[in-house]
Computed example of a mutant assay.
Amino acid sequence: MKIYISADMEGLPGERHWSDVNKGEKGYKRSLKEMTAEVSLVCKTLLKNGVGSITVRDSHGTAKNLNDLDLPDAVQLVSGWTDNLYGMMEFVSRSYNGAIFIGYHAPAGSKHNPLGHFYTTKAWRVKLNGEPLSELRLNTYIAAQEGVPVLCVMGDEDVCREAKNLIKGVMTIESWSQKSLTSGNKTLGLQIRKAVSAGLKLKPNIPKLPKHYDLEVEYHFSRDMRKVIGIKGIRVIKRAGNTVFFRANSLNNLLRTINSVL
């Protein structure tokens, strides 16, 4: 069995300020310790359940946070960003039996998680087909395009609620509101082991991809809005203030648009 893990940071326990998740700032070391602990525990649980191959995609910030020396030997770590369209899901393919998301968070404009965003902090709000677009939703669609079911999601309240609505039967752990795993929180550790083990036994459920992709981006600043007008290959439908409406005819075209305008 082969499992793909995408790991972020803003949905981990205790993350409340940008200084907690920005490399070099005061809270980052603690957050990295927590990220490493959760990813490592998930990997060990997978291996204990007979999974033979695990890929971990470092998906936070520079994507150079996790150290492969801190993870089990059987884990392949993907670090750094390339021009690959799949981004936080780089190298996911039909060869994987399932995906797990760790440290995921609410989309931009969230009232619950102050670190809610989509890809960057340029946008105040991002919507797809009229609904808030989260990294969870986009990455679930990428996995779906490759025929890979999402088995388990760990993060804040909003992202867990969205996961349950988007992916039938998915296991979720609302870890953001709990005490740190590294503080000796045995309850969270037990929840993670149970959810991951149960997720491996799920009947795979893969959401259907949308029939169309209308992207709406509301920028914080007009200078960022103006930069995206006229980009070659990007279809702009209309503008309204600092909001730009784009249209894509496929998931890959949507990914190209997102990579160009955010």
Results as ranks from 00 to 15, higher is better:
residue 165 N to D: 05
residue 175 S to F: 07
residue 178 Q to L: 14
residue 201 K to H: 10
residue 177 S to N: 13
residue 125 R to Y: 13
residue 179 K to F: 10
residue 169 G to Q: 11
residue 156 D to T: 11
residue 126 V to R: 02
residue 180 S to M: 09
residue 155 G to V: 08
residue 121 T to N: 08
residue 206 I to H: 03
residue 126 V to G: 04
residue 122 K to A: 03
residue 125 R to D: 12
residue 187 T to L: 15
residue 196 V to K: 14
residue 154 M to C: 07
residue 122 K to W: 06
residue 126 V to I: 13
residue 176 W to P: 07
residue 186 K to W: 09
residue 139 N to V: 00
residue 187 T to C: 11
residue 174 E to T: 11
residue 206 I to L: 01
residue 166 L to A: 05
residue 133 L to D: 00
residue 160 C to Q: 09
residue 194 K to A: 09
residue 132 P to Y: 08
residue 199 G to N: 07
residue 157 E to K: 15
residue 194 K to C: 09
residue 127 K to Y: 13
residue 172 T to C: 12
residue 208 K to P: 06
residue 122 K to Y: 09
residue 170 V to A: 12
residue 147 G to K: 10
residue 123 A to W: 01
residue 182 T to E: 03
residue 151 L to K: 14
residue 164 K to G: 05
residue 130 G to T: 03
residue 169 G to P: 12
residue 178 Q to P: 05
residue 158 D to R: 07
residue 138 L to V: 02
residue 148 V to G: 05
residue 123 A to Y: 01
residue 169 G to I: 06
residue 200 L to V: 08
residue 208 K to C: 09
residue 198 A to P: 01
residue 159 V to P: 01
residue 190 L to T: 15
residue 124 W to G: 10
residue 192 I to E: 03
residue 212 H to V: 14
residue 149 P to R: 01
residue 141 Y to I: 10
residue 199 G to I: 01
residue 155 G to L: 10
residue 139 N to M: 03
residue 174 E to A: 10
residue 134 S to P: 08
residue 199 G to F: 08
residue 207 P to Y: 10
residue 211 K to Q: 15
residue 125 R to Q: 14
residue 141 Y to P: 05
residue 161 R to I: 01
residue 134 S to A: 01
residue 151 L to T: 14
residue 127 K to H: 13
residue 126 V to W: 05
residue 189 G to L: 04
residue 129 N to D: 04
residue 163 A to C: 04
residue 209 L to V: 14
residue 208 K to V: 08
residue 150 V to N: 12
residue 207 P to Q: 15
residue 200 L to D: 00
residue 145 Q to W: 11
residue 177 S to Q: 14
residue 207 P to G: 11
residue 166 L to T: 01
residue 170 V to C: 06
residue 154 M to T: 10
residue 150 V to A: 08
residue 203 K to I: 14
residue 208 K to R: 11
residue 156 D to I: 09
residue 182 T to Y: 10
residue 130 G to A: 06
residue 194 K to Q: 15
residue 128 L to K: 00
residue 170 V to R: 04
residue 179 K to C: 13
residue 155 G to K: 02
